[in-house]
Computed example of a mutant assay.
Amino acid sequence: MSDAAIDKDSRTPWPAVYMTAAIVLGAVLAFLLWAVPVRDGARQWTAPMIAGGWMAWTFPVALFFWTIASLLVIFTILAVRFPETPRAGVLRIETTRGDRLFITLLGSAFICLGWLFLAGPPVWWGLGLSLAYAAAVFRWV
């Protein structure tokens, strides 16, 4: 390891970066949970979070976008903290973590759409297949 890499690591307070990211992402998730409408004392998880809004911002939709944003934040921190060189996997194309994340998200979208077409809702089994697909992509692609 070169002296420049050691100096760079010693100047960056990585525990503070990790904690800040966790606090911000946790605060946004807590806000989303707080924003879920309550009717008759029960949370309405699939009710619109913004009454009369132009888009159906329900909790599952907001949680989906929060998950994507969280993945992007985590992968950005990983890319800065642990730079990597591309590696060639089973497909014989060079990919980085970010490339594999993109391949995973794109493939998972098609898996869930296919599940909806072939089996209909709910998509829990499609989500399980997507997680298995993600593990395979990160392991072998």
Rank of each mutant, 00 (worst) to 15 (best):
Ala22Gly: 11
Ile23Leu: 09
Val24Glu: 01
Val24Arg: 00
Ala27Arg: 00
Ala30Ile: 03
Phe31Gln: 12
Phe31Ile: 11
Leu33Phe: 13
Pro37Leu: 03
Arg39Thr: 10
Asp40Arg: 09
Gly41Gln: 05
Ala42Arg: 13
Ala42Phe: 11
Gln44Trp: 08
Gln44His: 09
Gln44Glu: 12
Met49Gln: 00
Ile50Asp: 01
Ala51Ser: 04
Gly52Arg: 04
Gly52Asp: 00
Gly53Tyr: 01
Ala56Asp: 14
Ala56Phe: 13
Pro60Ser: 14
Val61Cys: 10
Leu63Thr: 08
Phe64Cys: 15
Phe64Ile: 09
Phe65Lys: 08
Phe65Gln: 12
Thr67Ser: 11
Thr67Val: 08
Ala69Lys: 06
Ser70Val: 02
Ser70Asp: 05
Ser70Lys: 04
Leu71Asn: 13
Val73Thr: 02
Val73Arg: 02
Ile74His: 04
Ile74Asn: 11
Ile74Phe: 10
Phe75Gln: 07
Phe75Thr: 15
Phe75Asp: 14
Leu78His: 11
Leu78Arg: 15
Val80Ser: 14
Val80Met: 14
Phe82Thr: 10
Glu84Gly: 08
Pro86Phe: 04
Ala88Phe: 05
Gly89Ile: 00
Leu91Lys: 06
Thr95Trp: 01
Thr95Gly: 01
Gly98Phe: 02
Gly98Tyr: 00
Asp99Ile: 00
Leu106Ser: 12
Leu106Ala: 12
Gly107Glu: 06
Ser108Cys: 10
Ser108Ile: 09
Ala109Met: 10
Phe110Met: 10
Ile111Met: 05
Gly114Leu: 15
Trp115Leu: 05
Trp115Phe: 06
Phe117Ile: 07
Leu118Met: 15
Trp125Gln: 13
